[in-house]
């Protein structure tokens, strides 16, 4: 029964047009949604060096930045929940990190090297468990007029252990 209905209707050009228009409208709406959300949610992924090179043009834009945490600079005020620390520059490119001996080695070198660019970070919230010397901090937030980075989100990676205990060159 059902088959016969559809066979009867199959050569209806107006019908097809109706579907095409509806489909195009829906797809257009979805593209619009994705484009506007991308614009609103875009974050510039920068290294500390890049940020210091063009700091003025980036003030008050959404930025995602990563760097090596300098353990001595970590300060947490438990009254106000304000966490402050400095990060040192690490390369943003994975290949570059690999070339320098892996993330753990790069983070270690960054913390040891006093000549690198550093950035002061302010974050309010709970102090993350993984925040410590030589951790990689990945943050999103804004650069203030005062040159301080105000982070809204703070992610940490500690590559020194777990699955990467062996330095890369030891792979046979």
């Amino acid at each position: 029964m059902e088959e016969s209905i559809s066979i009867k209707d199959q050569s209806n050009p107006g019908n097809r047009l109706k579907f095409i228009i509806a489909g195009v409208l829906i797809v257009a709406a979805m593209i619009y949604l994705i484009v506007t959300s991308t614009k609103a949610g875009a974050q510039y992924f920068l290294t500390v060096d890049e940020l210091s090179a063009k700091s003025t043009s980036l003030i008050n834009r959404d930025i995602r930045i990563s760097g090596a945490v300098l353990g001595d600079t970590i300060h947490y005020d438990t009254e106000t929940f304000v966490l402050e620390f400095d990060i040192a520059h690490v390369p943003g490119d994975n290949n570059e990190i690999e070339a320098q001996g892996g993330l753990a080695a790069v983070l270690h070198a960054a913390v040891e090297n006093p000549d690198l660019n550093t950035l002061h970070v302010v974050y309010s919230g709970v102090k993350p468990d993984l925040l410590r010397n030589e951790a990689q901090a990945i943050m999103s937030g804004r650069l203030g007029d005062d040159g301080i980075f105000y982070a809204d989100e703070l992610l940490l990676k500690c590559p020194s252990k777990y699955e990467e205990a062996l330095p890369e060159q030891a792979e046979s």
Binding site: M30, L33, I34, T36, S37, T38, A40, G41, A42, Q43, Y44, F45, L46, R64, G92, S140, E153
Partner: peptide, 18 residues
Amino acid sequence: GQKVTVGPPYYKAASGPL
């Protein structure tokens, strides 16, 4: 040449209506 990422606000805004 510039790495730009999108975070949770993007996903929420774009997928919420869907």
